[in-house]
Amino acid sequence: MRVELRLYATLRRFAPNAEGGALFVEMPEGASAADLIAKVKVDAGEVHILMVNGRSSPFVQRLAEGDRIGLFPAIGGG
């Protein structure tokens, strides 16, 4: 299946050639968000918000064809 991954802010450095931090990734059926993160070699420890189709989701979330996954680092400044 094919999913769309969007990396935000500092996480974009894990896909420096992806315009705007967006890339399409082929994943096996039944793959989870954690599997996707491992495949694209993003440091999971830097991912604080994980969105699947715009909704906050756990790392174990199973993915489906066409899902849009967003990965956000922690922002804490004031």
Binding site: G45, H48, I49, S56, P73, A74, G76, G77
Partner: peptide, 25 residues
Amino acid sequence: DKVYPTNIPSGKGIETLLGTPGPTP
């Protein structure tokens, strides 16, 4: 806890790298 699900020992996020320029706040 939905926004910050993981304990960060420093208590800080990526602002330690990117700073906090005036227009953003």
